[in-house]
């Protein structure tokens, strides 16, 4: 992943430099997934509530993401979509990004998700913002995490 590429490292060959950070990210993600699969975010008190929700009373684009991932890990797609459809859409891309980071670390040159034409990224921004607004509006409760 690209954050990792900026880490100043010893003068290893460029790809080798990426193996350790990529492995660390993978381990962290696997650890988080394991905890999230076992500790149910639907139960109050298991995880911190969102400070943004606490302060503003509004659902941000990330609201429901823990519950959505928990549901995905239990193969409950409909439940996951009900909590946070944006997260469900994002997960395959995130998995691809992780796979591509591994491929790069191992010396391949996989197609990159992020060097797409700029309008695509502006489009992502619009979708995220629209999602964040709409899920708070009456009549769009299918987007809300509740």
């Amino acid at each position: 992943m690209s954050l990792v590429q900026h880490l100043p490292s010893a003068r290893l060959p460029p790809r080798r430099r990426q193996v350790l950070p990529t492995a660390a990210v993978t381990a962290a993600a696997a650890g988080a997934a394991t905890v999230l699969a076992r500790v149910d975010p639907n139960q109050p008190g298991h995880y911190p509530g969102c400070p943004f929700l606490l302060v503003s009373g509004l659902y941000c684009p990330g609201c429901g993401s823990l519950r959505a991932v928990h549901d995905l890990l239990h193969a409950e797609l409909a439940d996951a979509l009900a909590r946070n459809p944006l997260t469900v859409v994002a997960v395959p891309f995130l998995l691809y990004a992780l796979g591509a980071a591994w491929a790069r670390a191992l010396g391949r040159r996989p197609p990159s998700l992020t060097s797409v034409p700029a309008p695509v990224i502006w489009g992502v921004l619009v979708v995220v913002l629209a999602f964040g607004v709409l899920r708070n509006l009456p009549g769009w409760s299918w987007l809300s995490p509740a």
Partner: peptide
């Protein structure tokens, strides 16, 4: 389970530039 996800099969090298990585390779 990303931990157990094997590195994906190597895709054929795309036409340059595959981008993204930039500094990586």
């Amino acid at each position: 389970d990303q931990g157990s996800m094997p590195p994906p099969p190597p895709p054929p090298p795309p036409p340059p530039p595959s981008g993204g990585g930039g500094y990586g390779a």
